[in-house]
């Protein structure tokens, strides 16, 4: 059902590097799952609103008041690579 190309496309969208073996395995497994999920098409949902939250809609808002956040040290404590208080990433985007 899913082609190898489609699997590769999704993997790029999701930023996941997959081995050739993984691509084929996922292709099979995801196809089976999606085929099973296709049974939802049996149901007539015309006029049925989607549920994006089980809670009733109401505005939950916060007052506009400043509160202390994290210090640079705390934020950078978990950082893999940093420089002068900033996070460091490779200079090239890599998107062609």
């Amino acid at each position: 059902m899913l082609t190898l190309q489609e699997v590769e496309h999704i993997a790029i969208l999701a930023r996941l590097e997959l081995s050739a073996e993984e691509k084929e395995r996922f292709r099979r497994q995801l196809s089976a799952i999606l085929e099973y999920a296709a049974r939802l098409q049996e149901l007539d949902t015309s006029g049925i609103p989607p549920t994006s939250s089980v809670l009733p809609p109401r505005s939950v808002l916060r007052p506009d008041a400043v509160e202390p956040g994290l210090s640079v040290e705390e934020l950078l404590k978990n950082a893999p690579r940093s420089e002068n208080g900033q996070f460091r990433v490779p200079p090239v985007l890599g998107l062609e």
Partner: peptide, 12 residues
């Protein structure tokens, strides 16, 4: 402000 001095867990 100096870089990364105005952040919290939510916005980072």
């Amino acid at each position: 402000d100096a870089p990364n001095t105005n952040i919290c867990p939510v916005c980072s």
